[in-house]
Amino acid sequence: MEGTKIPEVIERHQTALLDDWMKQQLAASTLRSDLLPSAELREQSREFLELLRQASRQAGSTDVAAPAWQPLRDMLTRVSRSRGEQGFSPSETATFVFSFKQPLFSRLAEAYGGDAKGLAWDTWLATAILDQLGLFTTEVHQKAREAVIMRQQQEMLELSTPVVKVWDGVLALPLIGTLDSARTQVVMESLLQRIVETGAEVAIIDITGVATVDTLVAQHLIKTITAARLMGADCIVSGIRPQIAATIVHLGVDLTGVVTKASLADALTHALQRVGVSVNGRPARA
């Protein structure tokens, strides 16, 4: 970065800057001494300052995505993650970075004296850098949260057994949502497993809740139906909506040989008759 005094100002006043910054952070209303002891906050601040000094000396520009900023980004990634786990909000973590502006600006003003243009330029550079770094901590926060949600979804997927035994010998599997291949696999396997466990004769696969049936989903369906048949159970596919039916036909997927019913209610009637239950009227639609 050309014409900047940022690295030398940090170098010359490193200890004073740290003291100023700490004083400010400890006095701020956003301080979370309940979550982070001040000794740890001081250590994080010290490390940030040191890495900022190194990066601003080496960096060719204020683009904090550049390699020169890597150690500082790594440090902020660690801090954001651990703060996220400690219960800090994303804006509280970003404030850690933003709050360094004031102490830095004061020292820059001192260094430039009457040179207004020089000061304006460096203030602009410092703002650009600290803003990007603050936003970066927010991104890390978000990613960490997404990872947690993904993990929870995965766990729920494994925990949930969506196969319902609706009658002796009759199983139903309501498929809901996006059938990406991982989920389809898990769900279909759990159906086959339940067929073995219960000795079911009929299994209803209801796809009312499925938005898209592409060739991969169709293939999973066909494979499951074939495997079920080998285990002595017949499958009925219900809930194929008109737009899905039209699409399947255009794709060229062959569903002849697959028993289909418009609604889950129709499929149930059919299934119960199959296992010898006399059905009075049609079951109420949900």
Partner: peptide, 10 residues
């Protein structure tokens, strides 16, 4: 919509 989405998926 369904046709376009399905083609996109493929």
């Amino acid at each position: 919509q369904t046709k376009m989405v399905t083609a996109a998926s493929e």
